[in-house]
Amino acid sequence: MLDVAEARARLLAAITPADLVGRRLALAEAAGQIAALDVDARVANPPFRRAVMDGYACRAADLPGPLPVAFEVPAGSAQTHLDAGQCARIFTGAPVPDGADVVVPQENLRAHEGGVLLDPSTQAWIRPVGDDIQIGQRLVSAGQALGPVELGLLAAGGHADVAVQSALKVALITTGDEVRPPGSALESGQIHSSNAVSLMALLAGWGVQAEHHHIADDYQAMVSALSELSARCDLVVTVGGVSAGDYDWVRPAIQALGQIESYRVRMKPGKPFAFGQIGTTPVCCVPGNPASALVTSLLFVWPAIQALRGQQHGDVRLPVRAKFTTTAAQRRRFLRVRWDGDGLRVHANQDSGSITPMAWATGLAEIAPDTAVADGDSLVYWPFSQWF
């Protein structure tokens, strides 16, 4: 069995970013999209020397005056010139006149019959050209998510629109003749398809174009579905059917069409996770138990989606104090826990077939193999907020 870190590294090493260059969108329409190309600044920000305070622009050599007030410079004014021996009334955000090298805050003003006396300040109160953004500076990189800050940066850098990726196409395949659609009447031995609902919602939240297919427990049906979907999708995710049971056809079907790089990971829940490729399309095989399906999707499918988008993968893992005890186990565990502001509490039910603990939890506590936990120990906490 592979450890989690090695399995993730192998999975990501086998993935080549997909060709997702899509269309150009106005910045106002691009929130939540993914940048398709690197974008550099066309203009500097600020594009002129900008006053930081309301006050008086002048030459430092002329201070403290008295100086006559030659003119006013409100924000939005055209560029002006200031002669020696004068000052200009200036307002925050306005362009500093040529010839001035300091803005004295209005609080430093002293009235004088020959003009104004200005007490020198410890700062110039002028933002130089390009103090925030230089022409040619990289604003966003290909694969970067476009949120409020990134879009504002693009606008400040002189852009009105941006090239965004087309949506990543992901096929979700569920298996099992015992699985029935949600809300349908159940006969003996049947269950509702909670995995399909949960994982499709997860994929939708990750911004992919997902489609769901439920395939009967039949080898030829699985081969046909995998062949078709891997040819037109960027990623295939299968749920269940990857173990070695008499009705588990996912693994042999993938092997008939491509290859499985890894089978079984030293983790709980989620040991039956596997991944491979059909042609150039990566395939992630998550277990069928609900907790296992969700945990392995978070730890493996999400990084795979990021890699296909050309994004740098990073996890949010926080040291948080345990408020429970547990004995050691051979596999790396990801316990469903709730952070209460003072530490982590663990749900009593850690069965991989139960979905209720996932709904109760705020994240996962990672416990290394062969490690017991005592009350007060520092644990690695993976908050769900990084995924959904």
Score class of each variant (00 low, 15 high):
Val286Asp: 12
Leu298Tyr: 13
Arg321Gly: 01
Gly288Asn: 04
Gln306Gly: 12
Asp315Tyr: 02
Ala293Ser: 15
Leu308His: 04
Gly310Ile: 04
Arg321Cys: 07
Ala304Ser: 09
Leu308Cys: 08
Trp302Cys: 14
Thr325Leu: 01
Pro303Asn: 12
Thr325Cys: 11
Leu308Gln: 07
Ser297Tyr: 06
Pro290Met: 06
Gln306Pro: 01
Thr326Gly: 01
Leu318Asp: 01
Pro290Phe: 02
Leu318Gln: 13
Thr296Ile: 12
Gln311Pro: 02
Cys285Gly: 10
Arg317Tyr: 00
Ala304Thr: 08
Val295Tyr: 07
Val316Ala: 13
Ala307Val: 01
Trp302Thr: 15
Gln306Leu: 14
Phe300Val: 11
Gln311Asn: 05
Thr326Val: 10
Gly314Glu: 13
Ala304Phe: 06
Ser292Arg: 05
Pro319Met: 06
Leu294Ile: 15
Pro287Thr: 03
Cys284Lys: 12
Pro303Val: 12
Leu308Tyr: 02
Phe300Arg: 12
Val295His: 08
Pro287His: 04
Thr326Trp: 00
Ile305Lys: 03
Ser297Asp: 05
Asp315Val: 14
Thr326Gln: 14
Thr326Pro: 00
Ser297Glu: 04
Lys323Thr: 04
Gln306Asn: 11
Leu299His: 11
Arg317Pro: 00
Gln312Tyr: 00
Thr327Leu: 15
Thr296Asp: 12
Val316Glu: 13
Ala291Phe: 05
Ala291Val: 07
Asn289Gln: 08
Asp315Cys: 07
Val316Tyr: 00
Ala322Arg: 08
Thr326Cys: 14
Ala291Leu: 11
Thr326Ile: 09
Thr296Gly: 13
Leu308Met: 07
Gly288Lys: 05
Gly310Pro: 13
Asp315His: 04
